[in-house]
Design a protein around this nucleic acid. Structure first.
Lengths: 338, 338
DNA sequence: TTGTAGGCGTTATCAT
DNA sequence: ATGATAACGCCTACAA
């Protein structure tokens, strides 16, 4: 079935020259006569020659391939980041293998292992929510250039690309306070995620700096499973003094908050303000449109790919960098008391 | 950097046996003593041995890898299909390489070529909107099992997985007629796409069978570029007798229709009904929520993967099948005159 | 049961 | 400028 692919040997045989010459001609080695080069290229086209990437990877110990492992490629933040990665990769002559962990620790480990078997030249990874142990990352990091993306493990030394979650959250809360909201709740993400920690810290500091008290009952930690998003929302709304604003750790959660609030016939933003984080594409179409925090996901992906390729192609010891991208608050109808 | 990976030779050396024995032990060949097998497995674990997929692929001429090429992985229909593909692939011991063409013909060809270089065992592809020539598919189809997904080229002989676009569209129009809409417009997709043709055919037949006249002015063909979606909508709404219902070829287009309609302060569904196709996840959150046609994308992905793997693993000549999945109309607020 | 040898397709190092 | 040879890591007849 797959046997009819032509190799450099076929070309060599056809032209009655050696395989090495064919190889050189194909790779633009300077030490080959223009005449034979022409002949080789012509024959290659005629025989529809396709180089075997496996063989090349084997001998060169380089595959020109980047692995990308994201929790969920359907989320616009990640898919947009992937586009950014691809953009740079293609430009620089690299292939991209995309995988998704579905937020599963086990799947994440399996995929890291499979990418490793394929001898990718580098890996960009955003760990799953359920990932709390990082041995697999440490292991990969020993042998393969690694860029941690969005959700990062500080202790693991590698390039890191994140957005300024702290600042973004801080601005959200400040905005809500300015709008006159009094009881601002926060649905936080899983504790082990860096983004959860930083967004929560921004929330707390904004309250403190405004000399507001922080009430534990208004903070709930969500697994980010859809059921639990709703559960958290209901818990908050069932409090004796329910919050009049909810800042959700991300847009999918904010959508669930909105869903529950609508079911309860709460007016948004009059009875309750809702704010998300990510700026997913459809959030502006919602009714009311969702206030959220926009992250430069495409640029973040580009930067991750650039850092990774730079590390791959560098012979010197690299100094690991952490690039922090600024976010911007997008104020829409879900948080504007009129 | 990547040189410290252990090979079967290292294991062989450590145990003072031959590499072939190590290979056999690792691959559960029956002709190897339990004792050596144990020793090999133990050494492999100790040395953190990872088989080199490139080398295996080279010698076996099989990579256990499926290529998946979709126009846009951010669209829920495709990402959900990909999940279905992955589900089956993992179960059957295959890897999945995901690529997106960004609806670009050139990128599609480049990616097909790169997947080919990697000697994937099979390919599931949904061509880009801009793809009007299919030589690259024919070429791949000669040497690699191929499944055409969603958008298919009938003339190319291979397995095909599609949904019943005709029926879906037919039901949409029938529903709109029952609701009393009189001037039902259709924003169709690019002419070369099978889904465009079939949905348009469903639209036309539903009108004809209801003895309604078909007016060309109510049909416009869209490139599916965002600008053009809006342009088409505006053209329709600017007609002397504008439509009172618009059936868009897919959900992203329906969203743009909704956007323009809202800008013009049209009441939905009173002034105008809007219906999409795909059932993207957020469409139920919109206001008004969007009537659309749901497709079993996950199951379609599963089926595509199953057909592909069956073909890969079959020695006999395969009889190509076309699996058509039924759709279901999801009636929401954007089409319900009260 | 185990070892030897050859080969998968390509590149790199020597010669020539 | 070109050719022969070895090597990349692994598998698989064949031989022992």
């Amino acid at each position: 079935m797959k046997s009819n692919s032509t190799t450099i040997k076929d070309i060599a045989y056809l032209l009655d020259i050696s395989a090495s010459t064919v190889s050189r001609a194909l790779n633009n080695h300077h030490e080959v006569s223009p005449k034979t080069r022409q002949a080789v290229l012509k024959a290659a086209k005629k025989l529809n020659y396709q180089p075997n990437a496996l063989a090349i990877g084997l001998v060169k110990n380089r595959t020109n391939t980047l692995g990308v492992l994201m929790p969920d490629i359907t989320q616009p933040f990640y898919s947009s980041a992937i586009s950014g990665i691809e953009y740079v990769a293609v430009e620089r002559g690299y292939y991209v293998l995309i995988c998704q962990s579905d937020e599963s620790y086990q799947k994440e480990m399996d995929l890291v292992s499979m990418l490793n078997k394929y001898r990718i030249d580098g890996l960009i990874i955003c760990p799953a929510t359920t990932t709390a142990r990082y041995q697999h990352l440490r292991e990969v990091n020993k042998t393969t250039p690694l860029v941690q993306f969005d959700r990062v493990v500080e202790k693991i030394e590698s390039h890191k690309v994140v957005s300024n979650d702290y600042q973004g959250a801080y601005e959200v809360v400040t905005h809500l306070l300015q709008c006159g909201y009094q009881r601002i709740a926060h649905i936080a993400g899983p504790k082990q995620l860096s983004i959860s920690k930083n967004r929560k810290r921004g929330y707390l500091d904004a309250l403190k700096n405004a000399r507001r008290s922080v009430e534990e009952q208004y903070i709930c930690t969500c697994t980010l499973a859809q059921d639990h998003m709703r559960g958290c929302t209901e818990m908050l709304l069932d409090l004796p003094y329910p919050p009049d604003a909810i800042f959700a750790v991300n847009d999918p959660t904010a959508l669930e908050v909105m869903y529950v609030a609508k079911q309860r016939k709460l007016a948004i933003p009059e009875d309750i303000a809702i704010v998300g984080f990510d700026d997913q594409s459809l959030t502006s179409y919602l009714n009311p449109s969702l206030t959220t925090v926009s992250q430069p996901s495409f640029a973040m992906g580009q930067t991750a790919a650039e850092m990774l390729i730079a590390q791959i192609e560098s012979n010197a010891k690299v100094l690991f960098e952490k690039k922090v991208f600024n976010t911007s608050l997008v104020i829409r109808d879900s948080s504007q008391k009129s």
